[in-house]
Amino acid sequence: MSARLVSSLNLRPSTRTKLQKAGFQTVKDLQETTPIELSKEIGISNNEALNILQQIKKNKVTSISASEALQQERKLCPISTSCEAMDQMLGGRGVPVGKITEFCGAPGMGKTQLGMQLCVNVQIPQNLSGPEGEAIFIDTEGSFIAQRAAEIARATINKLNENSVTECDPPMNFDIVMSKIYVSKVHNCDELIALIKVLDEFLQEHPRVKLLVIDSIAFHFRQQFDDMALRTRLLNGLAQDLNKFAQSYELAVVLFNQMTTKFIISGKYNLKDQAALVPALGESWGHQCTNRIVLYWRNEIRCAQLVKSPSLQETTVHYQINSTGVRDYQADSLNSKRRWEELYDI
């Protein structure tokens, strides 16, 4: 620990220079000093000096063995999507906790619906093998409609009641369910970044939060950015924070992403130039989430394809969205796709 270079600490460049000029090379040189001494010696405020010393003294990062990791993983309760096929695809029981899961899809695929469904399902009590948690819904597109969330919540509660054995004791209460979805609307990407930065505090106050939904991550980042390198940096920083939350508070982070058209110019005489629908935010963003699912239409059926996962097989499943929320695909519900086609004149 002691041989660590001062330059590798998380400090402002000016502070780092001051430390190095005063002859502090490694962390060992700093260990004996007090904040007041340090602030006098290199000419920084007491608070800054305290900040430096706290960084050195904070808890060590330790490693665990894979068997301990296995036990920890098994303790985490995934969040069901209410669509059994999709749950199976995601590893058996739903959206994994402690990881970032991204759903990408064109408009009308039901991304927001899925988000609201998850916000309700995260509250399924433990005796019904749910996570019994709370949810945060960060709404960037203005798409969170409380009325619709209420519909989904009622339908889900009814479904649970049907299955529950003890009728006198309803497993979930509608008002409580609605009160445990914390909705935050953000209007630009500055607000989004600021919100993520202060979320740490909120999560500490609300330890039961097990789900964080951002609908959608792409919206604010797809406009008003001239400097694409800056955008990549901001997005990656955001992903780092989200990863940290997912691990340290054991919550499932669910991001929704839009799709964009990518032109593939083949440059060869025998191949045509093509256009493909790909998830927005570029190649580098694709690395940030742990699991990625693409939602699309195929033969008038909604499909969800798992395209990226460190632990699961690439698969495609069918699902449907109806008045009660996200459900397993049933062959007789074809009309929604037709309506969609008429609307967009495809």
Binding site: A3, S63, K244
Partner: peptide, 24 residues
């Protein structure tokens, strides 16, 4: 499983800290 060690570090400073600890 016992012979695989996992360290979860989410930023570069945590990695630095861990590597120094490892060296020790």
């Amino acid at each position: 499983m016992n012979r695989i060690r996992i360290a979860k570090c989410f930023d570069v400073y945590a990695v630095m800290e861990f590597i120094e600890d490892l060296r020790d």
